[in-house]
Amino acid sequence: MDKEDNKIISLHNIAKIYQMGQEKVFAIRDISLDIYKNEYVAIMGPSGSGKSTLMNLIGCLDTPTFGKYYLNNQDVSNLDDNQLAKIRNKEIGFVFQTFNLLARATALKNVELPLIYAGISHSERIERAKKALESVGLGDRMNHKPNELSGGQRQRVAIARALVNNPSIILADEPTGNLDSKTGKEIMSLLNSLWNNGHTIVLVSHEEEIAKNAQRIIKLRDGLIEKEIINPNPLAYSN
């Protein structure tokens, strides 16, 4: 198969500039980047280097100030809010450092959420959400609310939510940042297994060890790609 056909993400000279009063903040200066199907990419860099901004752009939560972004060969750099919402719903699965679950909703309801906005019927929603929760090992916690779950379990719910609508890509921004190292390892091995099952994963971390699970490590500094490292030996951390 042609490699170009497998290109999921293609960034061309992307920039993101925030206007803070009189001052301009160049969160992303000029980044070009391709990510392919079933790749496992880690983004590293010091605080403020633009990792989260880049993730938000890749995840269509935001649009670039300059540059072109092709997602599955579709130009998404100038879409309106509703079109972006639809793409996020279908193509992107988010995992955040702070879990970002609905506090009042059960694990099941949280996982159902993307399917609700996809307009999927109640019975199918329940079925798929249950399956996703089972796949992250939470089959017995479906009716618990986030405050009745441990940090690791909450992150599993978030991962189940990211998976449930079969997205093209899973974006994880510091998924282990709020977890102890043992739980962090468990979450990483869960992400690794998703990669093994064919998912495409982009991971943000400032920890070398965690980044070493990925095939390719991209280092950012001041909104630019500082260097790109091919990791010959991925999945090291979880073993």
Binding site: L61, A85, K86, R88, N89, R161
Partner: peptide, 10 residues
């Protein structure tokens, strides 16, 4: 924010 992230439209 969470709802919009997972695909809620305006």
């Amino acid at each position: 924010g969470i709802r919009k992230t997972v695909g809620a439209k305006k």
